[in-house]
């Protein structure tokens, strides 16, 4: 990682993974919220494995960043917030597949989707946008000047 190419290559893969996630999970969320109503929810969901691949790329490269400079990440409030958004997105996803996914796939009309499904879509989209924003903030909140959100 500390070679001249290490960081930029890993960062490029990290952002590409995020784009794969937004382009599949993000579009599925937008579709549930009523954007592009002509797109079949069931068929659009078949692109989600690409998003999962993107997420795995993010976890791999993210672990590389973290293990190379743990002090710069673990004590960084932007990273802490990013992890928080990832945690909420993860819980939201588990809750979605446990309670709502079958109903969503059955219903092709977003107007008839339950408010619960739309709320979950909004939470998911906001969380991933939060992840991107906090990811960009990391470089501005480097320790030792900042080390947590609650001790400024």
């Amino acid at each position: 990682m500390n070679s001249p190419w290490g960081w930029p290559v890993a960062e490029s893969i990290h952002f590409l993974g995020l784009c794969m996630l937004i382009g599949t999970v993000g579009l599925f969320d937008l579709r549930m919220l009523g954007v592009a109503k002509q797109v079949s929810l069931t068929e659009l969901h078949k692109l989600v494995p690409i998003g999962v691949l993107g997420y795995l790329l993010n976890v791999t490269t993210g672990t590389m960043f973290l293990s190379t400079a743990p002090d710069q990440y673990l004590y960084n409030p932007a990273v802490q917030s990013k992890f928080f958004f990832m945690l909420i997105a993860g819980i939201n996803m588990l809750f979605f597949y446990a309670t709502t996914a079958t109903e969503v796939k059955r219903s092709e009309d977003s107007a008839s989707l339950a408010t619960r499904a739309k709320t979950m879509a909004a939470i998911s989209l906001l969380c991933w946008c939060g992840v991107i924003i906090c990811g960009r903030l990391i470089t501005y909140y480097r320790p030792p000047y900042y080390w947590c959100l609650w001790c400024q």
């Binding site: 784009c19 996630l21 937004i22 382009g23 690409i50």
Partner: peptide, 9 residues
């Protein structure tokens, strides 16, 4: 992220 995401999809 949205522009590239939509194009990738």
């Amino acid at each position: 992220a949205f522009v590239v995401g939509i194009n990738l999809a």
